[in-house]
Nucleic acid binder design. Structure first.
Length: 452
DNA sequence: GCGATCAGAT
DNA sequence: CACATCTGATCGC
């Protein structure tokens, strides 16, 4: 798509129309109460929540997109100034309240932006989303040129169960601590269903902050949330306020456990050679029931559990693999359904950023040959020489990630930015038999390959 | 002084 | 660990 026509979750000046997939901060950097660059398209729920985050926002700039409905937008081509139309269809992204995927069609072809999304086979909302997407794709020739993918977990080493399974794990943990207070670390939007399930299971209210309560009311959720700490033993607190020290302090007063629902990306399945995206790998584990692994014994096991069971990483803290992002198997399902010509990743902040074409390129219909990956142990560091280096440049979130060919010098033009503000920070991530090192230079993250 | 950007913590 | 968030420092206007 031509630059300057539309922007998705990007807020620099110079586009004709702007689209917001959901309200998480990493997608609203640059958006503010003083927004005036152009019309902002979003879902009804996002439009309702947006004034909380951005008070005094000029609401006349909002354009509501209802899911499953095609909206035709008349714009002007930035290059030729000729009138042009873009047809956009929003699909529920099942990530957090109001989150949507966006399917664009126009002179440029067809692009699908997933935003952050969870593509759960078992979830009713996802089933409806799948149907709506199928209909939207059939409305034209069905060809999708580019998918801009939520590649947060676009790596076969990440696997975790569905949210309903993870929610049951949370309930089991609370059940096994009948005399404990419970605090659950969550962010501003998302995981409301988890809280509702807990409320139902124990027939109790859930404490939330006054602002969170306002959000719950705006979302029209059942009236099971309270700001009174005396009526419940379960509290939802911001994740950033959640720490070992918090729990230690609370335990001086009352016995308290903490539960961290998150993608649990650090539970990694170790890959065997030649196991790259094979059917047996992707279907083993992720489709297997994990209910039989939910015993307290397993929960208490500090060993890394490959099947995505709860894990205690502290005396008081349980980590549960409840993720609002798709796991790798779900991403594969999604790409197999959409069959795009090509893929781009939207997430560049990950310290373990993986170019999605590595793993999913073979599922695309474009001319790009799938990367030659003879040894899966090298998959994260071996670069496909057929994919141009430019294709690794992300324009997503203000940072650029340059994945560099091991044979390419750091003196390359693309990374030679701002020497004066040079800062160095490295961290190492174990990936297979080699180490991958990241160097940060003034906002540019570089993937370096080093031998162990 | 204000907003934008970044580092650091959680 | 990582996601999403917040706080506080610094930069430029």
């Amino acid at each position: 798509m031509e630059d300057g026509l539309i922007s998705v979750d990007r807020w620099a000046r110079g586009s004709e129309a702007y689209f917001l997939t959901h309200l998480h901060s990493d997608h609203t950097k640059g958006l503010s109460s003083k927004w005036s660059h152009g019309p902002l398209f979003c879902s009804p729920i996002t439009a309702r929540l947006l004034p909380i985050k951005f008070p005094n926002f000029n609401l006349s700039l909002l354009r509501i997109l209802h899911t499953g409905t095609s909206h035709t937008i008349s714009l002007r081509s930035p290059s030729s100034s000729n009138p042009t139309t873009v047809i956009v269809t929003a699909i529920d992204a099942c990530h957090c309240p109001g989150s949507i995927m966006l399917l664009f069609r126009g002179d440029f072809g067809c692009e699908l932006h997933t935003g952050d999304f969870r593509w759960e086979g078992s979830c009713e909302k996802a089933r409806i989303a799948r149907e709506m997407l199928g209909v939207a794709l059939k409305e034209h020739d069905g060809v999708v040129d580019v998918v801009c993918l939520d590649n947060t977990y676009a790596n076969p080493t990440y696997e975790f169960p569905s949210r309903s399974v993870a929610a049951q794990q949370v309930i089991d943990i609370i059940s096994s601590h009948p005399d404990h207070d419970v605090i659950i670390g969550i962010n501003n939007y998302g995981k409301e269903d988890l809280l509702l399930q807990i409320s139902r299971a124990f027939d109790i209210e859930i404490w939330v902050s006054p602002q969170r309560l306002q959000t719950m009311h705006l979302l029209g959720l059942p009236d099971v949330f309270t700001t009174d700490t005396t009526v419940t033993r379960v509290r939802a607190v911001p994740m950033y306020s959640f720490s070992r020290k918090t729990l230690e302090g609370l335990n001086l007063i009352r016995p308290t456990i903490g539960i961290l629902p998150s993608g649990l990306p650090w539970v990694k399945k170790s890959l065997k050679k030649n196991e790259f995206l094979s059917g047996s790998f992707l279907t083993s584990g992720s489709k297997r029931s994990r209910c039989d692994t939910d015993s307290t014994q397993v929960q208490m096991d500090k060993k890394i559990d490959k099947t995505g069971s709860p894990k205690m990483f502290d005396k008081y803290i349980f980590s549960v693999p409840y993720s609002d992002h798709s796991n790798c198997a779900e991403l594969e399902d999604f790409i197999k359904l959409v069959k795009p010509s090509s893929l781009k990743g939207i997430v560049s902040s990950s310290t373990c950023y993986i170019e999605p074409m590595y793993y999913f390129g073979r599922l695309c219909t474009g001319n790009q040959p799938a990367p030659m990956l003879h040894n899966v142990e090298d998959v994260n560091v071996e670069l496909d020489r057929n994919i141009s280096k430019e294709s690794y440049l992300l324009k997503g979130s203000g940072k650029r990630v340059v994945t560099i060919n091991p044979e390419t010098s750091f003196e390359d033009d693309n990374v030679e930015l701002d020497r004066n503000r040079y800062r160095r920070k490295t961290s190492k991530v174990k990936l297979g038999s080699r180490m991958t090192k990241f160097i940060k230079r003034g906002g540019v993250k570089i993937l370096e390959h080093v031998e162990e």
